[in-house]
Write a protein that binds this DNA or RNA. Structure first.
Lengths: 172, 172
DNA sequence: CTCAACATGTAACTCGTTACATGATTGA
DNA sequence: TCAATCATGTAACGAGTTACATGTTGAG
């Protein structure tokens, strides 16, 4: 899975493992995450398989810049075209909501309030990213569309939390 | 992680592993999923640790009904009270959206249209579950609140897809 | 000079998935 | 009787996280 994400990011422009790791914390991070300990070995594997290539000499601090190869480009495209996305959800915070009744009322409220704060924080980060620059390239336009999912889901989350707090108040 | 979900479900009422597996496909499935091959070993571990207990004799077909123990109840409560939910998102379909520009226009549209269909399907399933019975017990009320997250996120997803299709049309 | 950020890696472990394996019961 | 569903389990594998480990460069 990670390999395709890396190839997709490198399809836009060459990057180092370090840069890629940052991308997973920022923009793409709203949809997927990966630590450096997973990224570096994967980059080496991708390079072994010829899907990416390191630019000649490592830069300062041993920095290696990778660019995607023709085979790599084919591989991402094939992934996008031939495979169905896995729609399995894994949302711990939402799962806990099912067990709200096991908490005492104050803890339950606190849980939902924490969700509200988290959603609002996500929202403002994403808004800032979206406002940062207006998309010019096709890649940036796609990125903007991807960002919008996060934006709308965070908004839905925040609205849900407000609604949930009202319901909790009704049943005291 | 799974252990807490199992304890939470068993806190409501005794169930067999088979029943628990079904719950992860239905109601709770909108937030977490688990296959039987993960559930059965975990139930045995939980029983070893005294957090749940199997009712005396196995029923027909070797069915074992588990109920939560006092220690088990304490364990879920402690988990809910003492630990922060992991908010890491892992959304493959959304990730692919960032790479829309790598697909040819028809495939890109098809991807978003598939998202729309998936969201609408999720929506109607969740609506049916929500409409099935009005919550009476505290557990059912919590469940309803949990369901609402799924409902609102699915709606956001569907709305996003419609918006994205418009944007794709603009940039042909 | 020193601290933060840059930059890459490995190893052990945990969690979850897929495939294999078996058998009982019930309704058509 | 036969197929679907009920019901439980194991083993191998894959993906991701945490912790360990190391060294460089640039800014103040």
């Amino acid at each position: 899975m990670l390999r395709h994400a890396l190839l997709g990011l490198l399809a836009d422009r060459p990057m180092s493992g370090y840069e890629l790791a940052q991308r997973f914390e920022a923009a793409v991070g709203a949809t997927w995450s990966a630590g450096h300990s997973q990224i570096y070995p994967e980059l080496n594997r991708l390079a072994d398989e010829g899907l990416i290539a390191a630019d000649g000499e490592p830069g300062p601090r041993g920095r290696k810049t990778y660019r995607i190869t023709g085979d790599g480009r084919d591989a991402v495209r094939e992934w996008l075209r031939e495979t169905e996305p896995d729609r399995t959800v894994r949302d711990e915070a939402a799962l806990r909501t099912f067990f709200l009744w096991l908490m005492d009322p104050d803890d339950a409220r606190a849980h939902v309030e924490a969700e509200l704060r988290a959603a609002e924080e996500a929202l403002s980060t994403l808004r800032a990213t979206a406002a940062a620059r207006r998309p010019a390239t096709p890649a940036e336009r796609s990125q903007r569309i991807g960002l919008e999912i996060g934006l709308r889901e965070a908004q839905a989350r925040a609205d849900w939390a407000v609604w949930a707090l009202e319901r909790l108040s009704e049943h005291r």
